[in-house]
Each structure stands twice: as structure tokens, then as C-alpha cells.
């Protein structure tokens, strides 16, 4: 497994996609938070001369509709990312059912034999919130 990180805006070698001088117009990646119960989500990028302007342009481009409570803009060259080529980084080398709800679907049948009902996290949430 290679541990290299790569900016999403850069190609390998010297033909960088963000060969701009350090101060000037450059690419900012934009993240919108639709509500305070949701995380910021990457929505795209803008080309701006400063973080303040990136926020202005991001508001015009990405929040004309729908709700937003917060905006992040991040200079693309400040982002560390995995390279797309390194597929092994996300490899699932064996069955991961044991980590998931679907790995325990037999519980319901077994509860039935004890004349009891299986429960889910949704039941608990509903009960605690509304009950």
C-alpha cells in the first residue's frame, strides 16, 4: 500500500493543475452544511482571488436553492487526498458482515422462538424521543 497523498487538483509530474502564483485567483473547494444536524458536504469548486470572495461566489453558485447554515471554502492546494489509482487503500479483503446489521438478521427468527420480538435502533430512537 502506498502512503502517498495527492492534491485533487494536481496531476502527477510537473504539469500541476494549480500552477498559479501563491497569491492571485485560485481554486477553492466548497463545502455546504445544509443544517446543523448534517455535516458539511463537498459540492464543487470556485475560482476566486481570496477566501472571502470564494465564500461570496460559493454562496451565489451553490446556495441559490435549498437550505444552508454554513459554508466552508478550502484552498485546493491545502487539501491532502488519496490518489484515485490506489484502489487497494479502500480494499475490503474479507467479509465484513460481522460489522453490519445485516450480519445479524438471524436474531429475529431466534427471538421468535423465545416468543419475543427483535428490536432495532430505530425502535429505540422512536421510543426515547416520542414515547
Amino acid at each position: 500500500m502506498t502512503q502517498s497523498t495527492q492534491r485533487p487538483g494536481a496531476v502527477q509530474g510537473d504539469a500541476s493543475l494549480s500552477q498559479k502564483p501563491p497569491v492571485g485567483y485560485e481554486v477553492y473547494e466548497v463545502f455546504v452544511q445544509p443544517s446543523q444536524l448534517e455535516p458539511h458536504t463537498h459540492v464543487g469548486s470556485v475560482w476566486a482571488p481570496s477566501p472571502e470572495w470564494a465564500i461570496q461566489v460559493a454562496r451565489e453558485n451553490f446556495t441559490r436553492r435549498g437550505s444552508a447554515v454554513n459554508l466552508w471554502v478550502v484552498r485546493r492546494r491545502d487539501i491532502a487526498a488519496t490518489p484515485y489509482e490506489d484502489e487497494d487503500f479502500f480494499a475490503r479483503e474479507f467479509d465484513r458482515k460481522y460489522r453490519e446489521v445485516s450480519g445479524y438478521s438471524d436474531n429475529a427468527q431466534r427471538w421468535k422462538r423465545f416468543k419475543a420480538r427483535a428490536m432495532s435502533i430505530e425502535d429505540v430512537i422512536h421510543d426515547v424521543r416520542e414515547g
Partner: peptide, 21 residues
């Protein structure tokens, strides 16, 4: 707005050719 989103995509393709917005 659509023009600006599309320009961003075009710019990343054009950057290795030394062309910007």
C-alpha cells in the same frame, strides 16, 4: 451559475495546456 460550474470543469482540463479562465 451553470456557466461558472462548467468553467471550473473546463479549467481543470485546460490547466495542463497552460490555459486558465
Amino acid at each position: 451559475g451553470h456557466g461558472q460550474l462548467l468553467l471550473r470543469v473546463a479549467e481543470d482540463l485546460a490547466a495542463p495546456l497552460g490555459r486558465d479562465r
